[in-house]
Amino acid sequence: MRNMNIKSIQQWFSRAGELVNEFYNAPYRSAIARAKRDEDDLFMMLVFSEMMGVPNPASYYTLELQPLMLERFHDWHQRMGMEHSPLDHFRCC
């Protein structure tokens, strides 16, 4: 009986915690997601910088990241209002 009570209290607390978290995060979810997207865009620009004629000392390493960027790149050029990839050496769709 006592165990049951502790369990239900714990459940109640974790539920309350979830709601409080939701209360904290929900109003700013989109503002933060947008800020994160901006940072991701900057990172992607660094990865593709050689293609735009900006020398990148780490290009040997960032080259490996390019395939991982594919989906995000597609998302980016569509978001920027370009139907296809703007880069000559990097086709997208």
Partner: peptide, 19 residues
């Protein structure tokens, strides 16, 4: 998961009221 998220009505009331 960002802008459009179905939210518990009491939590939503909490936001709406406090904003």
């Amino acid at each position: 998961g960002v802008d459009f998220v179905p939210t518990n009505k009491y939590v939503l009331w909490g936001h709406h009221f406090t904003s």
